[in-house]
Nucleic acid binder design. Structure first.
Length: 500
RNA sequence: GGGCCGUUAGCUCAGUCGGUAGAGCAUCGGACUUUUAAUCCGCUGGUCGCAGGUUCGAAUCCUGCACGGCCCA
């Protein structure tokens, strides 16, 4: 950690007390032993014995070994209770002086909440019926020098939760569950695509040309080659090269980097799933996304009904579909849909809605701006928006009936874009034309415009099969499935400004 | 980038009109062999985010900055 607090700058009296204890441990032997082995987990014991009555438990003579963090300590003279937390859950420990011995009991009294301990004993039930481990032995495995947040109020300060995620994970069950669900989502998506014959690949994160999306890249430098490289903003162009190469179903699930601001929906590095399927179009891709999201919710949450920030969502029904133009017309009744190709009309409407209209913006770009301004946040129910203007879709295939729009969709839920997909543009001459238009936009000042990628064109010239592709934002999907209001809640270590 | 809100003990939070810095939990000492927010008794613990300014006097008012949150771009 480069931006952490300076060395030992905040030793309080609380830390000092614990350091004294550590010093005594050191003089008595190895203060950080690594010899203790557990043979079970808290949840295993609960699963096995919670339903067993106290008298039957009293006959259980098997000795179990647990290890974990001490989360509570209640000492009453010559006996005490403690709470041990391991990766699976919690188990109460019952410590009696005459069972563990006087020396071990004294040591126990000196343990602090937060210490890592090993506990050996038999199962029992207390008089209130709580399953506990009646200890024969208790040993310290690692001393905790800093006090944990208070047991009742816990840790709520968002800044500390993000900067010291380990603390958040120790004390906030919700945080732990969020990241377990995240892992389950990723696991599900891989299984889902694998089962359909998709091949997972890894393509460059350091790219000579940043391509595949409209975004500003991070720039870095390769010393040996003495050239700048770009952290990828998307893997798209590489994945389509692989489709050219015969990987007809291919996906990558990994990090992208975009040099943009931080917000509750944006982190400079974020995780994207991109998958490509040859001999399919965007409509089939939509079907696949529908199935994928429904099955994902089912696998991860157990049902297709999702509660997010106080509202209910149903992923079990087919998602609403409408074109971008329809959506704009619906949300802007004062606009004339018949004039959606009229740049002047749209420029005026865009300006009236606070859009900074640039000279290089055509009708398609302006319509999209108006869409983003007036529609996106209102797309609450799961919705596919289709027919994005060709002008804003330089990698998507034109619609056969109307070349002004592309065979493209974006998926929205809870007012947020979760996925983007289209029938891939596989006509190399059309792609060359689109790249040139992007280069013109870049020259005119659009910093997010794409760069001309000659090698990608060369690949297209060998022949890209008709293909559909989709990008799915994993962080936003996990936000949705874990009822998390901020992207920072689903990133273990979100980007933060340096501390102090 | 702009607006609003926040930053006080390890944690969660009070702090009135500008007049010696408070609580709960945790810590520390003592009692206690079925507690579970254990209980009881006693004691600790502070660079009030940072830097200036106003004032006899600033946690409090003003300015700037840092970090965080929400909203907007």
């Amino acid at each position: 950690m480069s931006d952490g607090p300076s060395d030992r700058d905040d030793d309080s009296y609380l830390v000092a007390h614990r350091r004294d204890k550590l010093a005594r441990l050191r003089s008595a032997g190895n203060a950080y032993p690594n010899g203790f082995r557990r043979d079970t987990l808290a949840e295993h014991l609960h699963g096995r014995f919670d339903a067993v009555d106290a008298t039957s438990l009293a006959a259980e003579t098997r000795v179990y070994r647990l290890a974990g963090r001490l989360m509570a300590k209640r000492v009453m003279g010559k006996a005490g209770f403690a709470q041990l937390q391991d990766a699976s859950g919690c188990m109460q420990l019952f410590v009696q002086q005459n069972a563990v011995g006087e020396a071990a009991y004294e040591a126990f009294k000196n343990f602090d909440v937060g210490d890592l301990v090993g506990a050996v004993g038999t199962v029992m039930k207390t008089k209130t019926g709580e399953l506990s481990l009646k200890l024969q032995r208790l040993e310290l495995l690692a001393k905790s020098l800093r006090p944990l947040p208070e047991k009742w109020a816990g840790l709520t300060d968002t800044e500390t939760r993000y900067r010291q995620r380990y603390l958040d994970l120790i004390v906030n069950r919700q945080a732990r569950e969020t990241f377990l669900i995240r892992a389950a989502v990723v696991r599900f998506l891989r299984q889902f695509l694998d089962s359909l014959g998709f091949v997972e690949v890894e393509t460059p994160m350091l790219q000579p040309l940043p391509g595949g999306a409209a975004a500003r890249p991070f720039v870095t430098h390769h010393n040996a080659l003495d050239r700048d490289l770009y952290l990828r903003i998307a893997p798209e162009l590489y994945l389509k090269r692989l489709v050219v190469g015969g990987f007809e179903r291919v996906y990558e699930l990994n990090r992208n980097f975009r040099n943009e601001g931080l917000s509750s929906r944006h982190n400079p590095e974020f995780t994207m799933l991109e998958f490509y399927q040859a001999y399919a179009d965007y409509r089939e891709a939509m079907e696949l996304v529908e199935t994928m999201l429904r099955d994902c919710a089912l696998a991860v949450c157990g049902c297709t009904a999702v509660r997010y920030q106080g509202a209910n969502y149903e992923l079990g029904r087919p998602f609403r579909r409408l074109t971008l133009a329809q959506a704009v017309a619906e949300a802007n009744p004062d606009l004339d849909p018949a004039r959606f190709g009229d740049r002047n009309h749209l420029a005026e409407a865009a300006r009236a809605r606070g859009v900074l209209v640039g000279r290089e913006m055509g009708a398609g770009k302006l319509l999209t701006e108006i869409f983003e301004k007036t529609v996106e946040a209102k797309l609450i129910e799961p919705t596919f928006i289709t027919e994005y203007p060709t002008e804003v879709s330089p990698l998507a295939r034109c619609n056969d009936a109307n070349p002004e729009v592309t065979d493209r969709f974006e998926f929205f839920v809870a007012g947020r874009e979760l996925a983007n997909g289209f029938s891939e543009l596989n006509d190399p001459d059309d792609q060359a034309l689109r790249f040139r238009r992007q280069a013109e936009a870049k020259a005119a000042g659009d910093e997010e415009a794409m760069v001309f990628d000659a090698d990608y064109l060369r690949a297209l010239e060998y022949g890209l099969p008709p293909t559909a592709g989709v990008g799915l934002g994993i962080d936003r999907l996990v936000m949705f499935l874990t009822d998390s209001p901020s992207i920072r809640d689903v990133l273990l270590f979100p980007a933060m400004r340096p501390e102090r």
